[in-house]
Amino acid sequence: MHSKESFRYEDCEETARWLLGRVQSPPTIGIICGTGLGLLAETLHNAETFPYSQIPNFPASTVTGHAGQLVFGSLQGKTCVCMKGRFHVYEGYPLWKVTLPIRVFKLLGVQVLLVTNAAGSLCDTYRTGDLMIIRDHINMPGLAALNPLTGPNDERFGPRFPSLRDTYDSDLRSLALDIARRLGHAGLTHEGVYCMVGGPNFESVAEARFLQKLGADAVGMSTAPEVVVAKHCGMRVFGLSLITNRVSQEYEGEESVNHSSVLEVGEGRAQILQEFVTELVRSIRLHGERESQDSL
């Protein structure tokens, strides 16, 4: 784990400057590719790929199924940057390091952050392979003071005490629901509350029951830190969970989940996820665009 206690604006600036000196166009949309969405980055036009190991100040992704690359290019006429592999606290990184790419995205010119993840279902009506548009989140580590905004605040990114009331952009959520209906995926698309836990173990039965009573519909080990920092930086945020398993709330009669089965569900839903996010990118209206948003 890095010895520094917080990020430095100058480090983010150095990373952004290094990247901007090597890409054709600054990105306006950032996409964190969770399980099942890694192939999206391969559809970018005029793609430029940078392994995390080559990027100044970037950590390395150590999780199976996460490629560890930053990919720049054009998708549906919009300039994008895709993270093929994110960082997690359970890998040993402090939260400021987990979220450093989001602050770099802000300095690159990103206006909208699309965050995807794999999650386990706590809701009786969700099935494996369903999609959950994130309406809100419960940040369990954050409630225990493990927050990416801990430490000195730099006003060049955002205020000391940001509000998270409207973190997941309501217009983007409505747009996504319209897209799901248009693509014929309404039956497998829901809106719900995502809960982040620290991991890397999957939840115990007692923990699953506890989280369900708190109001969580799905649970995973990522997303909340990146979203908190994106909101702090003034970005619009859209979150999407792929439901890869049902979290057991019973002590008898159910198989335990494992990472291989999570990856298998991600591969099975890769095409639908890619189609969904591609259409969402096409339909997003960015600040400064003159054309009206396409009607669906």
Rank of each mutant, 00 (worst) to 15 (best):
S3V: 14
E5T: 14
D11H: 13
C12E: 05
E13C: 09
A16T: 05
A16F: 04
R17H: 11
L19P: 01
L19T: 04
L20S: 12
L20W: 03
G21S: 10
R22V: 09
V23M: 13
S25Q: 15
P27Q: 08
I29M: 07
C33D: 00
G38I: 00
L39R: 13
L40P: 02
L40M: 09
A47Q: 11
Y52T: 06
Y52Q: 08
S53L: 13
S61A: 15
T62W: 01
V63E: 03
A67W: 02
L75C: 09
M83Q: 08
R86W: 08
R86P: 07
F87G: 01
G92Y: 04
W96G: 00
K97Q: 14
V98A: 05
V98L: 08
T99W: 02
R103D: 01
R103L: 02
V104M: 03
F105P: 01
L108H: 00
L108C: 05
V110N: 00
V110P: 00
V112N: 08
L113K: 08
A118I: 02
A119S: 14
Y126T: 02
D130M: 03
I133M: 10
I133D: 00
R135C: 10
R135F: 09
M140S: 08
M140L: 15
P141K: 08
A145Y: 11
L149T: 03
T150E: 11
G151T: 03
G151A: 09
P152L: 13
D154Q: 04
E155I: 10
R156H: 11
R160P: 07
P162T: 03
D171L: 10
L172A: 11
L175F: 10
A176H: 06
L177F: 12
I179N: 05
R182M: 11
L183M: 13
G184D: 10
H185Y: 15
H185I: 11
A186N: 10
H190T: 02
E191G: 07
M196V: 09
P200H: 12
N201D: 13
S204K: 07
A208I: 15
Q212F: 09
K213R: 14
L214M: 15
D217V: 05
D217H: 15
A218N: 04
G220S: 11
T223N: 12
E226P: 00
E226T: 02
K231D: 09
H232L: 06
H232G: 09
C233R: 00
M235L: 14
V237T: 13
G239A: 12
L242W: 00
T244G: 04
N245I: 04
S248I: 07
E250H: 15
Y251G: 12
Y251K: 11
Y251D: 13
V257M: 14
V262C: 01
E264A: 15
V265H: 02
G266Y: 02
E267F: 00
Q271W: 01
I272F: 05
V277A: 02
T278G: 04
S283P: 02
R285N: 10
H287I: 14
H287C: 12
G288V: 04
E291F: 12
Q293W: 06
D294N: 12
S295E: 14
